[in-house]
């Protein structure tokens, strides 16, 4: 009986600590009126050494087009397991996409960088359209994209 209680206490503590070590973060991406079809966007994170750490979101579900998100594709080999459960529709020109994710606290103020690759049908690919360090101080600060993204910000 004691063993069961101890195990329950341990799992509860671990669960609670896991919840406490994460917070909801809203990523807001507004696209320019670039006059084309919906944009494919790969949102991913690199670690302090610049290595791919993981994906946060994929806008666009057809995997045959992922090679145009070239930096993301190079890092992942286009492995769709990286984006299972975090994939939605592509984003139209002039539209704003808001994604709320439960992100680990460890990502902030630790040298992690959020990147966005973008690609639009019949228009030039735009890898690393956004590259912004994840810091508590950088929250809610708007960053301009290079080609298709008017601005991007994350809020906590």
């Amino acid at each position: 009986m004691r063993t069961i209680f101890a195990a329950l206490a341990l799992t509860t503590a671990l669960t609670l600590s896991g919840i406490a070590m994460a917070k909801p973060v809203t990523l807001t991406t507004t696209l320019k009126n670039y006059g084309g079809n919906g944009a494919y966007l790969a949102i991913y994170v690199t670690d302090p050494k610049g290595a791919y750490a993981g994906s946060l979101w994929m806008a666009g579900t057809k995997s045959k087009y992922y090679e145009h998100l070239s930096d993301w594709y190079r890092a992942t080999g286009g492995n769709t397991a990286e984006i299972n459960g975090i994939t939605g529709a592509s984003v139209g020109a002039g539209r704003q996409m808001e994604i709320t994710l439960d992100l680990a606290d460890a990502l902030f103020d630790a040298g992690y960088i959020l990147h966005i690759d973008a690609a639009v049908e019949d228009m030039r690919d735009s890898p690393n359209e956004i590259a912004v360090p994840l810091t508590a101080g950088g929250a809610s600060q708007s960053v301009q994209g290079r080609r298709y993204i008017a601005n991007f910000s994350y809020g906590m």
Binding site: L56, N84, G85, D105
Partner: peptide, 24 residues
Amino acid sequence: GPAPAGSVAPPQNGLFGSGAAPKV
């Protein structure tokens, strides 16, 4: 293609604090 958001939990890549589905 990949599994759409909400159909499965996000990948366990250490970036997500829990298995909560993202909201878009």
